[in-house]
Design a protein around this nucleic acid. Structure first.
Lengths: 192, 192
DNA sequence: ACTGTAGCGGAGGTACCCCTCCGGTTCAAT
DNA sequence: ATTGAACCGGAGGGGTACCTCCGCTACAGT
């Protein structure tokens, strides 16, 4: 509520190296990790990630001594993007802004699910990310609630969980996913 | 729609052995597998399942030559229970019957999620189970729709996916899960 | 009680993954 | 151009999971 939505990445311990080749490897690893987590979930093989990044396994471990470090960094990255998006959406209508943001949120859920699975909530960074995300997205819901567009008897956590759950599911096609999400959002709208 | 909701287990290839000790082992394996899948998801260790069941790994492989066989059997079991429940609920009010069944459905989702992950939809049994479940549960939704309790512009598949997604998510506590599910169900109800 | 057979358990070969360690390489500051 | 510090890759030891195979066990039918 009071926290600024930005400093998440600065909390993360591991930092991007200064040297050119090192920085390139760091980026490649992060990108490969993102893909691997999205594909295989929490227990993607670290060796596979290094392979995909075209980097030795040793390099991976130097940058991210722990599997957790890698997770945290990838996750913090996504959250930052999400926070920035919330700010950019501030000028739209309350309900439109909220749903637009939730759309983005849904896009980043693949990673989040893996992270949640791996970190199991017992991480400082995870906590910081959550706060940061609530600080960024929470106001969107509150605004919609004040405008009478969203029901008042729910909080931002409820909404996030709902959207997260639905988007994490396997659907026949994207149309079905959108349809189901819309139905659920009708429940959020219903102020009667 | 026309299919009877019961024959699922008969489709499954592996069958319960006749001999007393063998049957006991079979049951123990199934129970251990159910627990392991619920706990560790799709990639639970087969050796661990055998250990939990107090049975040699060889016994597991004799009963279920493939990981898939084990999955299918466990899954078919759950589906059968679910189908039976649908019949028992037939005498309640349309909306109440529907939500009550979805409650049971949610309870079995833990296994289903693992199965879905493992089988990836490319299984005959999976297909048969789905049909069986739709045949059993679909009428509950249709009845609610005819009664004007549920919106008409959605089908049973949509509903199942929605509930499945939400219940598969990690919540702070059961109260939150129920709250979120209720919100989403308000979206289903909303006939305006 | 006898006996054939269905069923049992787990050792062991193979494969993969985790993580450490260190000799060689590459950058960037002088 | 030199040089030393930072960085690189991957071999290798330890662990676990998968699955097969076979000598032994215990059930059930006579």
């Amino acid at each position: 509520m009071t926290a600024t939505p930005f400093p998440v990445s600065e909390i993360v311990a591991t930092r991007r190296p200064h040297r050119k080749d090192a920085a390139r490897n760091y980026d490649a690893l992060l990108e490969a990790a993102r893909a691997a987590f999205a594909e295989h979930g929490a227990d993607a093989s670290l060796e596979d990630i290094a392979r995909r990044a075209g980097v030795g396994i040793g390099t991976l471990y130097r940058n991210f001594p722990t599997r957790r470090d890698l997770f945290e960094t990838v996750y913090a990255d996504e959250v930052n993007t999400l926070c920035r998006a919330a700010v950019e959406l501030a000028d739209r209508e309350p309900w439109a802004a909220l749903t637009a943001w939730l759309d983005r949120f849904a896009g980043y859920m693949v990673t989040k699910r893996a992270v949640r699975e791996a970190l199991d909530g017992e991480s400082d960074i995870f906590q910081a990310c959550r706060e940061s995300m609530y600080a960024a997205g929470g106001p969107l819901l509150e605004r919609a609630q004040r405008a009478g567009a969203a029901r008042a008897d729910m909080d931002f956590g409820d909404l996030l969980r709902m959207v997260a759950g639905i988007t994490a599911t396997v659907f026949d096609d994207d149309a079905q996913r959108d349809r189901v999400l819309a139905i659920a959002m009708d429940g959020v709208r219903a102020v009667r």
